[in-house]
Design a protein around this nucleic acid. Structure first.
Lengths: 197, 197
DNA sequence: TTTACTATACCGTCCAGCCGGTATAGTAAA
DNA sequence: TTTACTATACCGGCTGGACGGTATAGTAAA
């Protein structure tokens, strides 16, 4: 609607996937009906089925997007100057970016016993774990950091903040939950401490 | 069937709620059909509806049970000799106890946009936060501990371990995920460290 | 003419809730 | 102690609506 007027087809596909993810994240798996997705994406049901002939195809679509986004995030993590831990924790907080939404959306599918979604989440988690472990060293500390990341990402999904979507400026700097930076500081002191079990 | 021959009705009610929670936790909200719940509880659909006239009534049933279990857990936390942090982290890990199951079950409902379930989870979280804050002192550290607890509880729900239910000896000492004790040790060193942001 | 849709109608399935029926136990008058 | 009635606990079939998917006819731009 608001954007892509130039590439009608390609834009519509992405818009449909966006709508599917948003419905999954905000309203749950059950509400993410074909008709609801079509309406949210601003297309007809027939139009949706033109692009994704099956609900499974829609799911494959979000799984595919998640995979590429995770790979990109892993690359960013490794090259991040702020360090992997800070990057991971910051991007785990509900910033409203694309990765967050995709991750929460897929987690909804995973909880609906979709094995492909579970597999995708698990491999994403493994990749992050590996990246953090490489710099942190200690497995227990790494696991702890991952748990905090999980808690931020999934836990926040249960409690949608009262401030509604706020359409524009999603990825830009938005005042994060105040203690995220505090947690990062805490974790960074931890990584500097000689940890003896 | 196997147990209560004396109070047939009361036993059935609890059995139905157990079945509902188990189906929610293990198979997702969508699979927790009235018929499926009835079958799992060993009653007919009509029999289920005799006890819970509506699916909402079923949900109210699990929410009520969760509330009482949380209150009991909070009391245990405060009187725990091992300290609130250790208690919280240990009981957050997937031990298969009743609180875990109820919590995961309600989280499934919360993700299906059930506002009552979300409210129940939020107040439970608030109560735990308060109990931990009282002994830990620092809000950021408390928040961090809560996030780890969330990560353990909800994150583990995504990845059901391959070892099946194992009917007997649920609450007793069971070899937990190896790093839970490590995380507790890590957190306890943390609480002893003078944390300066 | 192909691509990219819209609009609508339809089918089969699944599911919540409803309803009529049943079995058992207790109670209490005759 | 037989009969009549009531309450509890439960069974299983039915209906109406929602949903996934199919089909078809039409449209408008490239």
């Amino acid at each position: 609607m608001t954007d892509n007027a130039k590439t009608p087809a390609a834009g519509t596909r992405e818009r449909i996937l966006d709508a599917f993810e948003t419905l999954l994240s905000e309203c749950g798996e059950r509400a993410a009906t074909l008709e609801a997705v079509a309406a949210a994406a601003g297309v007809s049901k027939g139009g949706l089925l033109y692009h994704f002939g099956t609900k499974d195809a829609l799911i494959e679509g979000v799984l595919g997007r998640l995979e590429t986004m995770v790979a990109l995030d892993i690359a960013q993590i490794r090259s991040s100057e702020a360090g992997p831990v800070a990057h991971l924790i910051r991007t785990s907080a509900p910033t409203g970016n694309n990765l967050d939404r995709a991750l929460v959306a897929v987690s909804r599918l995973a909880q609906a016993s979709n094995s492909r979604a579970r597999q995708a989440l698990r491999s994403a988690n493994d990749a992050w774990y590996q990246a953090v472990l490489e710099t942190v060293g200690d497995p227990v500390l790494t696991r702890t950091i991952m748990l905090i990341s999980d808690g931020l990402c999934y836990g926040s999904a249960f409690f949608p903040t009262e401030d509604p979507p706020r359409k524009g400026a999603q990825d830009a700097a938005r005042p994060q939950s105040p203690d995220v930076e505090g947690i990062i500081a805490l974790l960074e002191t931890l990584t500097a401490i000689p940890y003896r079990p």
